[in-house]
Design a protein around this nucleic acid. Structure first.
Lengths: 154, 154
DNA sequence: ACCAATATTGGAATATTATTCCTTTCAACC
DNA sequence: GGTTGAAAGGAATAATATTCCAATATTGGT
């Protein structure tokens, strides 16, 4: 798929807000009839512009009320150490995000837990006991002001 | 809705991985027939456990290759200053996340842009010119290792 | 500017999937 | 063990997605 025209961009904008919309309604919102609209959606899926469709859940209702940023430094930068860490990150459901950043620490992770006790347990028993971490710095999130999956499409 | 049983939890787990699954297939995965499965999904939607359904897009394909954490300190903590800042955050499509954290800065934001130039423009022309920021500290994200919307449900 | 070739659209027909309705099964309580 | 309420499952119906084909628009060449 080469390039996106304004129809495609409109479709993406709507679907990243609400993917439960029907083809009929989507088509009307982007000023197409449903057949060409449907074809464009399929193309956007196949070409990977749309990665997946997901349900977003309410973390509070699920009893997950504590979030934090955890900055971590690795004990060394061997390939094996790195791999152990990344496998740990991938497999841990508490870790929502993990990025290597420019700055004092190697990685910044966003973690979620039911309460501070569970968070502490996670950090101590799981993260630190993986044996590849030199140090961590945890910043609790006090208030979540914005959190969106919507990317800025023109 | 009082409490979730293991059927409900299974449903949530599947839907936050892939919400494009059909009732038939979902029902089979959670060991129900489709009618009761459908009723549970509706209940989870109505009661707010499921907040919304969205399409997740590929930011690279959309030409958004730069992400960063931006820590900000407010010039003061007046209610009005705060409101100006929060309105700005809400309205800016570059800002994906914004949280108040315990630590040296008032807020941590995750921002996305096409390139470093666009990021710089955003910070200078939009964020700082809002007039309510004292200082900022930007950490570019070098490598994205994990980024998920899936919450840990038991 | 015209024509041919190609791609895209839109409406109608069909297939698939969601939703409702009704009967049956299960479980808790007396 | 029988009775009541709640949840499950199958069959019928309604809604929606997908395909098919004819019509329209767009592109490139002369």
């Amino acid at each position: 798929m080469n390039e996106l025209d304004s129809f495609d961009l409109s479709i993406l904008k709507v679907l990243q807000e609400d993917s439960s919309i029907h083809m009929q309604a989507l088509a009307e919102r982007v000023n197409l009839s449903k057949t060409p609209c449907w074809r464009r959606v399929k193309k956007l899926e196949e070409s990977g512009y749309i990665r997946k469709y997901v349900a977003l859940l309410d973390h509070r209702k699920l009893g997950l009320s504590v979030m934090a940023y955890v900055q971590v430094s690795m004990k060394d930068h061997d390939l094996n150490t790195l791999q152990v860490f990344l496998d740990f990150v991938e497999q841990s459901p508490y870790i929502l995000d993990c990025h290597a950043t420019a700055g004092n620490f190697d990685y910044v992770m966003k973690v979620i837990a039911a309460d501070t006790e569970e968070l502490e347990n996670f950090l101590m028993r799981e993260l630190l006991s993986s044996g590849v971490i030199q140090s961590t710095n945890t910043n609790l999130i006090l208030r979540q002001k914005k959190s969106t999956t919507e990317l800025p499409v023109k």
